[in-house]
């Protein structure tokens, strides 16, 4: 039942991507966002698409899962794409009052849609192939310099770990409570938007109450194990860079130079 949500779920595996250090993956994703927006013509866009496909294929995760993740935000993608059709100047193809569709608009729309789709797909690669613990560990390391600004990175990372850990628990709990209320004849699926929102109250309140209860229990359990903030904590599994991480670096440089080259010469 908790298998309903695919988006952001870790899929254990043993691909090259699984073996990359989480820090490299996070940094690569950040760089990748920049690359995707730096690509500004068809050739560089093609390059970044190919690079993404390469990453997705080497993660060895079922393609269906990506589609399911994309389905969740399909609306956003289409909306951004549709809006951009009307944004642009240059050769006008079709005009109605102040609304006009230009060649550039179509290109913009195409690019925006492609960019968002690729970004989501590659972000999925990160979340599918990295366990939540590794992910927060990696983030904690990357954000370490912020400690100079007196930001308690360790605590923030712990909060993130807890938050991520609670997602499946709450999904399951929501299902349970929904079932219980349905068993009392609550109609969750029918009716207009107001009816639906109202029908959700019997689920929301118990969920709210139980989240406080769980938070309390967890805090107590953590204190029992002598947790008192992130400072000075050591870890059992230390992250370390390996040869694949050098590969990631080279791969990033390759895409970067490729995009710059294509942007200039095509």
């Amino acid at each position: 039942m908790s298998g309903d949500i695919v988006f952001g779920r870790f899929m254990p595996g043993n691909s090259v991507i699984h073996r990359i250090d989480p820090r490299s993956k996070i940094l690569f994703l950040t760089a990748y966002v920049i690359f995707a927006f730096a690509a500004e013509n068809y050739v560089s866009m093609l390059l970044i698409t190919l690079a993404s496909i390469f990453v997705i294929v080497s993660a060895k995760i079922k393609f269906k899962l990506y589609l399911e993740s994309l389905k969740v935000i399909l609306f956003v993608v289409l909306f951004a794409g549709a809006l951009n059709i009307f944004n642009g100047s240059g050769h006008i193809l079709w005009e109605y009052g102040i609304i006009k569709i230009t060649e550039e608009g179509i290109k913009n729309s195409l690019f925006v849609t492609l960019r968002i789709t690729l970004l989501i797909a590659v972000s999925c690669v990160l979340s599918f192939t990295t366990s939540p613990t590794d992910l927060t560990d990696g983030l904690e390391h990357i954000l370490k310099p912020l400690e100079l600004l007196h930001i308690r990175v360790g605590d923030v990372a712990m909060m993130m770990t807890v938050a991520i850990r609670f997602i499946p628990i709450f999904t399951e709990e929501t299902n349970k409570i929904t079932n219980a209320q349905k068993a009392r004849g609550a109609d969750m699926d029918g009716g207009n938007i107001f009816k639906r929102v109202k029908a959700f109250i019997p689920v929301l309140i118990p969920l709210f109450v139980s989240s406080f209860r769980r938070a309390d229990d967890l805090a107590l359990a953590m204190e029992c194990r002598c947790y008192n903030g992130g400072k000075g904590r050591t870890r059992m599994k230390k992250l370390c860079f390996s040869r694949v991480d050098i590969g990631v670096l080279l791969f990033s440089i390759l895409i970067f130079t490729g995009i710059v080259y294509c942007n200039i010469y095509f």
Binding site: E173, A180, R184, A186, S210
Partner: peptide
């Protein structure tokens, strides 16, 4: 009618009376 495991976590109304009447109301 089904009463699930640990059903006490499904209560949501302001009073016990209202909570019991949720089913009949539906």
């Amino acid at each position: 009618g089904a009463v699930f495991q640990y059903p006490e976590y499904q209560l949501f109304e302001e009073t016990v009376y209202k909570d019991i009447s949720f089913g009949p109301k539906n």
